[in-house]
């Protein structure tokens, strides 16, 4: 079903493609022969029950975990064997399911870090802070404040990251990821723990930065209305037990009997677990 979408595009312009990716932890196949291709500027969803291997896909792309087999190409270059920081500097940035900000740094400093992951002046210039170094710092400051403004956090620039409310921390992570000037953005459950209103606001924000910054985005999300809304013009990949269960437009996914079964299965499972917990 996805062939029709692929056929329209030129193969050489692929932004990222995962080819037959697998990884095993002990006996568990966390990701099993998973393939996925994105073209520049696309925003696709990645969904699936808990433990399906979604986060592991992000860990594989950023090479935090090495695949057992398979290949990853980003702008035509293989990512295998590259370190996570190299991959970031090539233009892939991410957020984390369990927020990982620098807790004692201010919101502003968190964003700034993404901008100067490679310092803009030499070590010797750092010691004497030449005019050139000072100019570079001023430039960084301006850019960091712009990014904070983009995610509506400018008023919190001086607050310690750990003291921000949960929802704002998620947005700060987004700004920090944007600061590394990526072309591909990996968002791991950006709406986790948000209520209806916050979700709507987040949808607006993500759509805005997607259109404005021309990012390619892969988004893992459990809030179905968030995914369905943001991916309505593109497609959603569904993972189950590490392998691809389905891919298609939000409509196709919602009516896919296998997807429904996988999710219902999880719900049954969840009920069973909560019963066991309460005993």
């Amino acid at each position: 079903m996805s062939d029709s979408i692929f056929a329209m595009k030129n193969v050489s312009s692929e932004e990222i493609s995962l080819k037959n990716l697998s990884v095993q932890f002990g006996g568990v196949r966390a990701v099993d022969n998973f393939s996925m291709t994105l073209y520049p500027g696309e925003l696709v969803g990645l969904i699936g029950p808990n433990g399906a291997g979604k986060t592991t896909v992000f860990n594989l792309i950023t090479n935090y975990i090495k695949p057992t087999s398979g290949e990853i190409f980003f702008m035509g270059k293989s990512l295998l064997g590259k370190s996570p920081d190299e991959i970031c500097r090539m233009g892939i940035s991410r957020t984390f399911q369990n927020i990982r900000l620098f807790p004692q740094m201010t919101a502003y400093e968190n964003v700034e870090l993404g901008l100067h992951n490679v310092p803009h002046y030499s070590l010797l210039e750092a010691f004497v802070r030449t005019p050139r170094a000072r100019r570079a710092e001023a430039e960084t400051r301006k850019r960091a404040l712009e990014l904070l403004e983009m995610v509506n956090l400018k008023d919190f620039a001086g607050e310690r990251a750990s003291s921000l409310p949960y929802g704002l921390q998620r947005r700060l992570e987004l700004a920090r990821a944007m600061a590394t000037s990526p072309t591909l953005l990996l968002l791991d459950e950006p709406a986790a723990g948000m209520n209806e209103d916050e979700c709507n606001e987040l949808v607006k924000l993500i759509r805005q930065i997607h259109e404005h910054m021309k990012y390619t985005i892969i988004m893992i999300e459990h809030h179905m209305n968030v995914v369905m809304e943001l991916c309505k013009n593109s497609r959603i990949y569904v993972l189950n037990l590490g392998s691809l269960l389905a891919v298609g437009s939000p409509k196709e996914i919602q009516t896919n009997p296998q997807v429904i079964k996988a999710y219902l299965g999880e719900r049954k499972h969840a009920r069973y677990n909560s019963n066991a917990g309460s005993q």
Binding site: R100, F102, L113, H116, V118, H120, F127
Partner: peptide, 25 residues
């Protein structure tokens, strides 16, 4: 207080996050 020093601070607070944000550990 330089960008080098701030990268060090980031590493001390969350090494994984620092690396994922492009800092060469």
């Amino acid at each position: 207080t330089s960008q080098y020093g701030k990268n060090c601070i980031a590493i001390s607070q969350d090494e994984v996050a620092a690396q994922m944000m492009g800092v060469n550990l």
